[in-house]
Write a protein that binds this DNA or RNA. Structure first.
Lengths: 135, 135
DNA sequence: CTGCGTGCAAATAGTTTGCAGTTCA
DNA sequence: TGAACTGCAAACTATTTGCACGCAG
């Protein structure tokens, strides 16, 4: 229903760096944090480029994007397995756990269907305080 | 764990108008749309006040807030029954259906618990195309 | 070569804040 | 009366866009 795939574009130094960092961190980061980290490690990448690259990656489905309750965007390289899942995020330290819930997935579709909605999608985020922060 | 309730504040003309409109519309609106509608119907309310009132209502739990995938905030007077629920939103026309899923609620808590997360909360939105828009 | 990609600065858009005047209790 | 509320304009923040230059293919 959505054959997005190519969207690769050129292989530039900055794109490589952004992607590399995303793979290393393997956690949610805002575009700004990402940009900051890149500069720290010496990579000369403009904030603009970070945004543009991220946008590209999200469009091609290589990166997941969410929003903080505060509204800022968070990016993470996780759909690498192209596998749909959700996140359990610590509201204190941000530690994230990937979770799945096939039953829940089915439930959302069933509900949407019962109300006559098609082409269903959903977003689910679970927030909590992780054991380390709770202490 | 959270006995929020009072937070009423003063009863002013503008607050009354905002609340009245929210009750009438009973659907998700952005602060700006709300402001626009208020002006149309002659109510003289400043955008600033709309934002401040909405913030107040959200804090006191009288109003629900979400975000468009685009990032803007949406407000709706629905937790009136103080009952936790979610929404099934048409991505075309915005038509919204309130839904519940006790089993799903329990599931999120169980998952969070298994990972040692406490003080759990979650957000879930289901997007789809309603029957009217699908035609 | 030649057009996609980059980065700076300026532009947006939504939301918040400072402050003086207004109003509810 | 006097603290809470209002509204305008200015401030902010995150993100986007215009444009000239540089580099991948």
């Amino acid at each position: 229903m959505n054959g997005s795939r190519p969207a690769a574009g050129r292989t530039t130094r900055q794109r490589t760096e952004v992607i590399a960092l995303l793979q290393e961190v393997n956690d949610f980061l805002t575009a700004q944090q990402l940009h900051g980290l890149l500069r720290e490690r010496g990579a000369k990448v403009g904030l603009t480029t970070v945004y543009r690259t991220l946008q590209l990656l999200v469009d091609s489905g290589e990166v997941d994007a969410t929003r903080l309750p505060d509204g800022e965007q968070l990016f993470r390289q996780c759909s690498r397995s192209r596998h749909h899942h959700h996140h359990l995020v610590c509201r204190m330290c941000g530690r994230t756990v990937e979770i799945e819930g096939p039953a829940m997935e089915r439930w959302t579709e069933k509900v949407a269907d019962q109300h006559g909605y098609t082409d269903v999608a959903h977003t689910l985020e679970i927030f909590g305080t992780c054991s380390a922060c709770a202490r």
